[in-house]
Amino acid sequence: MPGGGPEMDDYMETLKDEEDALWENVECNRHMLSRYINPAKLTPYLRQCKVIDEQDEDEVLNAPMLPSKINRAGRLLDILHTKGQRGYVVFLESLEFYYPELYKLVTGKEPTRRFSTIVVEEGHEGLTHFLMNEVIKLQQQMKAKDLQRCELLARLRQLEDEKKQMTLTRVELLTFQERYYKMKEERDSYNDELVKVKDDNYNLAMRYAQLSEEKNMAVMRSRDLQLEIDQLKHRLNKMEEECKLERNQSLKLKNDIENRPKKEQVLELERENEMLKTKNQELQSIIQAGKRSLPDSDKAILDILEHDRKEALEDRQELVNRIYNLQEEARQAEELRDKYLEEKEDLELKCSTLGKDCEMYKHRMNTVMLQLEEVERERDQAFHSRDEAQTQYSQCLIEKDKYRKQIRELEEKNDEMRIEMVRREACIVNLESKLRRLSKDSNNLDQSLPRNLPVTIISQDFGDASPRTNGQEADDSSTSEESPEDSKYFLPYHPPQRRMNLKGIQLQRAKS
């Protein structure tokens, strides 16, 4: 015994090295194993092979420090690593049964499904019991997946119906949107047309105001020219009257000059006056001389005659003075006559000038009245044309509004008919989907599995289990394997941990 101590140590070291070499393959693929292994699927088989106990299973599945599946799978690998070579062998058998691809990844061999460990530990009855539990578990999982698949199909059909409904609603909204954009385009076109009409109206108003201003300026210029013409006519008439007055005065002077006595007659009258003065002096001298030589009687007679002569001279002087006064009065009367005649001529000139001015103003008033009548006639014609244009424009607008209203009513009726057609199509689609759903539900009910399987069917299934373990590994792997896509769409199922009653199965096998 003492001599065998070193050999035992060498043997233990060799086993430990082999164990480390075995687990080295697992550690190399630890990331892939932790990512894809579900500990809840492996722990029943590991407990059946007595590699882990209930406490280890509870620690792996329910520990609060292991929230994710990767953490739980890593903890399970750590626990199996502590179990040595047996933990490695049982772990590979569980991978061979549940995850053939991972088994091939770790060992590089094809899975054979021999279950040597569980046969050694529990015997064939334990293997049968384990396989029966796994089959029931798989059936329950398949039923749950079928239910989930039916629910998802129903949800899918519902979503398809909602999608069709949303599509129809979208078509309806597109119809309304198209109608909205069309009405918006019509409104924009009408606004552009309105702005264009306003611009045209403004341009016409500006043109009309400009023409009116030009016409008023032309009328004012015409009036100024007419006033200048009238003033020139007035000056012409005044000059004609002055010329006529000057002509009359010149004719009067000419007549006075023609009626003036001649120079010879004046000289002859002056000679006669001198001769008479000479004779008068001679007679006076004779009379003076006679007075001195005459007697007293003759002197008395001469005195009487002288007195008579003096009286006659006085009378004559009075007559001469009277004649002079009369001549002066006649001259003054002639001057007054000439003055009055001049005033008369001036008044006649003024009267004729005023008459011509009156005629001029009368003509001017007639011209202004004619212009006013023409302006009123043009204004009435413009008003009439404007009223006709406004009436025609309003009539066109009324007809346009009428046609637009008819078009809008027809478009609304068309839209309502399209919407009604879309709604009826939606109703038809809904009815078809309901009919299809009812038909599929009836087919699913016919094809669904019963909840409680008979014992004979279970025994028959387990009677055929042994050949399947040898020759149909691919079928078992397809039913027991969970793909990543299934984990996305289906909830994980945790079967209840219970042991099955095998009395009925044993009785059935005894009868057979």
Rank of each mutant, 00 (worst) to 15 (best):
G4M: 13
G4S: 12
G4N: 10
G5P: 12
G5M: 12
P6K: 12
P6H: 12
E7A: 10
E7Q: 12
E7M: 11
E7I: 09
M8Q: 14
D9V: 11
D10M: 15
D10F: 13
M12I: 14
M12Y: 09
M12R: 11
M12G: 10
M12N: 10
E13V: 12
E13F: 11
E13M: 11
E13L: 12
T14K: 12
T14N: 15
K16E: 11
D17S: 10
D17N: 12
E18V: 12
E18F: 11
E19R: 11
E19S: 11
D20Q: 13
D20M: 10
D20A: 11
A21Y: 08
A21T: 10
L22S: 14
L22G: 07
W23C: 09
W23A: 03
W23R: 07
W23Y: 07
W23Q: 08
E24R: 07
E24S: 08
E24C: 09
E24G: 08
N25F: 08
E27W: 00
E27Q: 06
C28E: 10
C28T: 09
C28A: 07
N29P: 00
N29C: 04
N29E: 02
N29G: 04
R30E: 01
R30N: 04
R30P: 01
H31V: 14
H31Q: 06
M32Y: 10
M32V: 13
L33S: 00
L33R: 01
S34W: 00
R35Y: 05
R35G: 02
R35S: 04
R35N: 05
R35H: 07
Y36K: 07
Y36A: 10
I37H: 01
I37K: 01
N38I: 02
N38H: 09
P39H: 03
P39Q: 01
P39S: 05
A40T: 04
A40W: 09
A40C: 07
A40R: 03
L42G: 07
L42H: 01
L42N: 02
P44S: 06
P44K: 03
Y45L: 09
Y45A: 01
Y45R: 03
Y45M: 08
Y45T: 02
L46A: 01
L46H: 03
L46P: 02
L46E: 03
L46N: 03
R47D: 03
R47W: 01
R47N: 02
Q48E: 12
Q48V: 04
Q48T: 06
C49E: 15
C49F: 15
K50C: 07
V51Y: 01
V51E: 04
V51N: 03
I52W: 02
I52R: 02
D53R: 05
D53Q: 04
D53W: 03
D53N: 03
D53F: 05
E54M: 11
E54R: 05
E54W: 03
Q55R: 02
Q55Y: 09
D56P: 03
D56I: 01
E57V: 03
E57L: 03
E57F: 01
E57I: 02
D58R: 01
D58G: 04
D58Y: 07
E59H: 07
E59V: 02
E59Q: 00
V60Y: 07
V60L: 01
L61R: 00
N62D: 04
N62L: 06
N62T: 11
A63M: 02
A63Q: 02
A63N: 15
A63C: 14
P64Y: 08
M65Q: 04
L66W: 00
L66C: 01
P67Y: 14
P67K: 10
P67S: 11
P67E: 00
P67F: 07
S68D: 03
S68K: 00
S68H: 02
K69F: 00
K69A: 02
K69D: 00
I70Y: 11
I70T: 05
I70W: 04
I70Q: 07
I70S: 04
I70P: 01
N71C: 06
N71A: 13
N71Q: 15
R72N: 01
R72L: 00
R72A: 00
A73E: 00
G74A: 14
R75V: 02
R75I: 00
R75M: 05
R75A: 04
L76G: 02
L76N: 01
L77F: 07
L77S: 02
L77Q: 04
L77M: 10
D78N: 03
D78C: 05
D78Y: 03
I79N: 02
L80K: 01
H81V: 07
H81N: 05
T82E: 06
T82Y: 06
T82H: 11
K83M: 01
K83F: 04
K83Q: 07
G84W: 05
Q85L: 08
Q85K: 12
R86G: 12
R86Y: 01
R86W: 07
G87Q: 05
G87A: 07
Y88C: 07
Y88T: 08
Y88H: 14
Y88V: 09
Y88A: 06
V89L: 09
V89R: 06
V90C: 15
F91I: 05
F91M: 07
L92V: 15
L92F: 07
L92I: 15
L92W: 04
E93Q: 14
E93D: 14
S94F: 02
S94Y: 02
L95G: 03
L95A: 02
L95V: 07
E96F: 02
E96A: 08
E96V: 07
E96W: 01
E96M: 08
F97S: 11
F97Q: 06
Y99R: 03
P100K: 07
P100Q: 07
E101Y: 07
E101K: 15
L102M: 01
Y103T: 06
Y103A: 08
Y103I: 00
L105M: 01
L105P: 06
V106Q: 14
V106A: 06
V106S: 05
V106M: 10
G108A: 05
K109R: 13
K109E: 06
E110S: 10
E110D: 10
E110N: 15
P111T: 14
P111S: 15
T112Q: 15
T112V: 15
T112R: 14
T112C: 15
R113F: 03
R114S: 14
R114H: 14
R114I: 13
F115M: 15
F115Y: 15
F115K: 09
F115R: 13
S116K: 11
S116Y: 05
S116E: 11
T117S: 15
I118N: 14
I118W: 15
I118G: 06
V119D: 14
V119A: 14
V119K: 15
E121Y: 05
E121F: 06
E121T: 11
E121C: 08
E121S: 14
G123T: 15
H124N: 14
H124Q: 12
E125L: 14
G126P: 13
L127P: 08
L127V: 11
L127M: 15
L127F: 13
T128E: 14
T128Y: 09
T128L: 15
H129K: 04
H129L: 13
L131M: 04
L131F: 10
L131Q: 05
L131S: 05
L131K: 04
M132H: 00
E134V: 15
E134K: 08
E134G: 14
V135A: 05
I136L: 15
I136G: 11
I136H: 11
K137M: 11
K137E: 09
K137N: 06
K137W: 13
L138A: 15
L138Q: 14
L138Y: 05
L138K: 09
Q139M: 10
Q139Y: 08
Q140M: 13
Q140G: 14
Q140R: 14
Q141Y: 15
Q141V: 12
Q141G: 12
M142P: 08
M142K: 11
K143M: 12
K143R: 13
K143W: 08
K143P: 07
K143D: 08
A144M: 11
A144H: 12
A144T: 12
K145M: 13
K145R: 14
D146Y: 09
D146T: 11
